[in-house]
Amino acid sequence: MPQDPHSEMQQAPATHETRWSLVALAASPEDSSVNAMDELLQIYLPVLKGMLNRWPQLDESTKEDLLQSFVQKRILEKQLLSKADASKGRFRNFLFRSFQNHIVDECRKSANTKRSPGKENLVSYDEIQGGIGESSELEKAYNVSWVRNLLEEGCRRLEVECKQKDRMDLWVVFCERLKKPFLEGAVPMPYGELVELLDIESPSQASNLLVTSKRLLRKYLEDVIRETVNDPTEIQAEVQFLKKCLK
């Protein structure tokens, strides 16, 4: 194995458009806006879904209804993206406020529908009212979901790189010591077991692998975050902001 895997794995994967350029493209009348919209929704819908997943009272069909109606009514019909303004802050905050308003509207509509028998009841008012709770909780759930998606994307890039470079030892140590414990609530695998599992010489070698994988994830995470800010110099400030949101 190479002595310094970190230096060998410095090359970052291809970067994507920044979020704001993607938003502008998705909102434009160009043909390419369809693909941009698709990419944008694939990034943000899992975040919104992750937020809704926090409430077990909401069943799958209710969550899907809320997401589908948000895409259909707000994003497509009302051309929500054309109202997004980069000078007014983060796109994800804009999206959260819009989704929150959408939920409130759906609640009102469902309440009215309940009073008018025979009309289609898309989303149960009781389900949402009882399920969502405080708006500050909703915002924290959204932030948690957002950070989780950033970290998972960073982890995904790390895994791809480890596979490409035939360095699954790095990935295994990272998963067992960090990813599973902190993303999934699992107990970290003791170093002694990792030494046996990977057939390496010592716990300090396993520790070294962990240090290397941490450095790599930090780099990939910065790549992912870079795609969400206007200027690369904002990355560190964004990390601090995300930490604050989680507290």
């Binding site: 926090r54 909780e137 924290k140 759930a141 932030n143 948690v144 950070v147 989780r148 970290l151 960090l178 990813k179 414990p181 902190f182 993303l183 609530g185 941490k214 994830l217 930090r218 995470l221 990390v239 995300l242 930490k243 989680l246 507290k247």
Partner: peptide
């Protein structure tokens, strides 16, 4: 819980 998950994510961010 939401706080447990937030703490796990925060710890992972701090690890970086």
């Amino acid at each position: 819980t939401l706080n447990e998950e937030a703490n796990g994510l925060l710890t992972l961010l701090n690890e970086m």
